[in-house]
């Protein structure tokens, strides 16, 4: 937007004595357009993200129980950080998350790519299939979690999953609330896949359609066979930029896992991701906003580091020079 406005201003620049004024007017218009578009987002970002993050950083150095404006004598230095880092429950929550991410990231990636490849080949009712798989993305985690919990995976005999098992003579299973065997992972993972896969699938479909057809044709001329060969040597490398972005998005989404965990397995320590633990620490009755803020910043730092590393190793943003 800014660029095209600037070009328009340049175009008028060579037309004689009015040029300077026109240029000034153009610049002002450019600036106005720029702030008109960016301003509202910036204000939102400032009010709902940057100020709270800053405040949270401030709180993290205080014993801020039941208050968001601690007094100087509440200052505890890095006490909250050491408390959080040595808290076994917080450590456990990081382990829980790691297990979850190690599973959900590759599986979501594989499922969405697989679906995209299949849909890309479908010759009829394409729009229908695309919508069908994308629709769950519009569903809130809360609603889906309640459906999963109360209807599909409830532990009583008339739950959907248990009814199906009953047909095969299998006893009912308490899907949630019991860590051994950890069936709750099945519930959580299936829910997340159901909601997320469609979205990443759309990203992949868009990327697939960008791959120039002549690459495949050239490969066929050279004797390549459709299928695995072209997939590994043409499709996948061409999807690199999208794949890296998708991997990052999936990983960040995994870090942010909260709703379904809280709703499905809220109190089970073996299935408590960091955000649920921080919620328990800093909100509700406990109200330890200082330690909670410290934990949140530790988590933010972790996400940033992992994302940077991932970007570095997978080469996010430098796909052009390859």
């Amino acid at each position: 937007m800014a660029v095209s406005a600037a070009t328009a201003a340049d175009a008028t620049a060579g037309t004689g004595e009015h040029a300077p004024r026109a240029r000034r007017g153009g610049r002002r218009r450019t600036a106005l357009t720029f702030w008109g578009f960016v301003g509202p987002f910036l204000i939102g970002l400032l009010v709902f993200t940057i100020i709270p993050v800053g405040w949270s950083a401030y709180l993290s150095f205080f014993d801020a129980t039941n208050t968001v404006s601690p007094t100087p004598e509440d200052f505890v230095g890095f006490g909250n950080y050491t408390a959080m880092l040595t808290d076994p429950a917080f450590q456990d929550s990081l382990v829980t998350f790691t297990v979850f991410a190690a599973f959900i990231v590759p599986v979501t990636f594989a499922f969405s790519l697989g679906l995209a490849l299949m849909l890309n080949r479908v010759r009829f009712m394409r729009a229908f299939f695309r919508s069908v798989f994308f629709l769950p993305f519009a569903c809130s985690y809360v609603v889906a979690a309640l459906v999963w919990k109360m209807s599909i995976f409830n532990g009583v005999r008339y739950g959907l999953a248990n009814t199906v098992l009953d047909l095969f003579g299998v006893d009912e299973i308490a899907w949630l609330f019991r860590p051994d065997p950890p069936w709750f992972w099945l519930v959580i993972v299936s829910l997340r896949l159901w909601i997320q896969v469609g979205f990443y699938m759309i990203l992949f479909i868009a990327a697939l359609q960008q791959i120039p057809q002549h690459l495949y044709e050239a490969a066929y001329v050279d004797g390549a066979k459709p299928g695995r060969q072209t997939f590994w040597h043409i499709t996948l490398p061409q999807l690199r930029a999208t794949s890296v972005a998708v991997l990052m998005l999936i990983l960040i989404a995994a870090y942010q896992a909260f709703d379904e965990f809280l709703l499905l397995v809220g109190t089970m320590p073996s299935a408590r991701p960091p955000l649920v633990y921080l919620y328990q620490t800093s909100l509700g009755m406990q109200q330890e906003l200082g330690t909670g803020s410290a934990g949140a910043l530790i988590l933010a730092l972790l996400i940033a580091i992992v994302t940077l590393l991932q970007g570095k190793f997978l080469g996010f943003g430098n796909s052009e020079d390859r």
């Binding site: 309640l146 809280l262 709703l263 809220g266 649920v276 919620y279 328990q280 620490t281 509700g284 009755m285």
Partner: peptide, 13 residues
């Protein structure tokens, strides 16, 4: 305790 609270949250939900 927070757990109970969370549980309450969920239960009420």
């Amino acid at each position: 305790q927070t757990f109970a609270k969370l549980a309450m949250n969920r239960r009420r939900m």
